[in-house]
């Protein structure tokens, strides 16, 4: 069996998550080969064949050109699996490859057991086992679900080329705004989730943060609703944090949020639902309504 792994680089640097693809390849009991749109300055530690698309020429993101080059590698190597990260890049590109090859795709895979893929669904409240009916498959893996493997060594580079036309122009990156608040160094973070209920209730979060000397964070739905500013969003599309104490208030625990808080020292989660996925990562899950529990906790902190 052979897997074609699709690595990623961002702004000239290899993404470390690329090594998780090697972990998935091992679970598939396959020989890995690698495709990467990157530069020679950011090569992976891996001794096999690297099909390298020069990111200076073809961009770090260009679905049409990258698709064309990946299909060239597929034609030449005939891999059993084409494996992507379930990242912005992989989510975008994987279905294009699957559709071009008319082969099945499994998305956001968290485990592989005897060739059957395990996927999450319904906000991680359920899992599905999925089999692919075609002889080959496209797979995207959930970031963090597979242990990274650093094969070591220097890759044998095969430079890729294409003169395909692109229907989409990548005009560069727009950086995070200057108003960005850096939560990365905060020692205490009190974070609000949808379970807080209303914008007014976020006062409970601000109040506790002030008394504890911490920062306020938020999950995506709270930011989208405009209850707390965008620059305080925590998770894979926001900031990654590592406070000594993280208090998650009414956050159900979507995987994107968990990815941003997993390096926290001690996690207290407050949630009405004892089955909420945040329980998978919390050191203590308080089964309660945040709007009732937070005033009680704040009072205890002020008047011990």
């Amino acid at each position: 069996m052979k897997t074609l792994l699709i690595g990623e680089s961002r702004e000239g640097r290899l993404l470390n998550a690329t090594y998780e693809l090697f972990g998935a390849s091992e679970k598939l009991k396959s020989e890995p080969i690698l495709f990467l749109a990157g530069t020679e300055a950011g090569l992976p530690s891996y001794a096999g064949t690297l099909y390298l698309a020069d990111a200076k020429k073809y961009g770090e993101y260009n679905p049409d050109l990258h698709k064309n080059m990946i299909l060239q590698v597929v034609e030449k190597e005939n891999p059993d699996y084409v494996v992507f990260l379930h990242s912005s890049y992989g989510r975008d590109l994987a279905p294009r490859i699957a559709a071009s090859l008319r082969i099945g795709q499994v998305s956001e895979v968290v485990d592989i057991v005897d060739g059957t893929f395990e996927l999450t669904c319904c906000n991680a409240r359920m899992h599905r086992s999925v089999r692919v009916s075609t002889p080959r498959a496209v797979v995207t893996i959930q970031p963090g679900a597979f242990s990274p493997i650093r094969p070591g060594g220097t890759p044998l580079i095969q430079a890729m080329q294409t003169d395909a036309l692109s229907s989409i122009e990548f005009a560069g990156y727009e950086p995070a705004g200057p108003e960005q608040i850096d939560l990365g160094k905060a020692g205490i973070i009190i974070s609000a989730g949808r379970g807080i209920g209303t914008k007014e209730n976020t006062a409970l979060i601000w109040n506790l943060a002030r008394i504890l000397g911490g920062e306020v964070g938020a999950s995506r739905p709270v930011v989208d609703a405009g209850w707390i500013e965008h620059s305080r969003q925590i998770g894979s599309t926001g900031q990654t944090v590592s406070p000594e104490l993280y208090i998650a208030c009414g956050i159900s625990g979507a995987i994107q949020h968990l990815a941003g808080i997993k390096n926290s020292g001690y996690i207290v989660a407050i949630n009405k639902d004892r089955d909420a996925p945040i329980g998978e990562i919390a050191d203590a899950l308080v089964v309660a309504d945040v709007t009732q529990f937070l005033p009680a906790l704040t009072e205890r902190v002020t008047k011990p």
Binding site: S133, A269, I281, V287, A296
Partner: peptide, 27 residues
């Protein structure tokens, strides 16, 4: 091109403690 063979509740892997009860004791 793909088929779901099974849907199930994932096993809990979390090792945290679960606290239930009245609000002031919980605090």
């Amino acid at each position: 091109l793909t088929a779901t063979t099974r849907i199930f509740k994932p096993e809990k892997k979390g090792s945290g403690i679960i606290l239930e009860g009245d609000t002031s004791t919980l605090a």
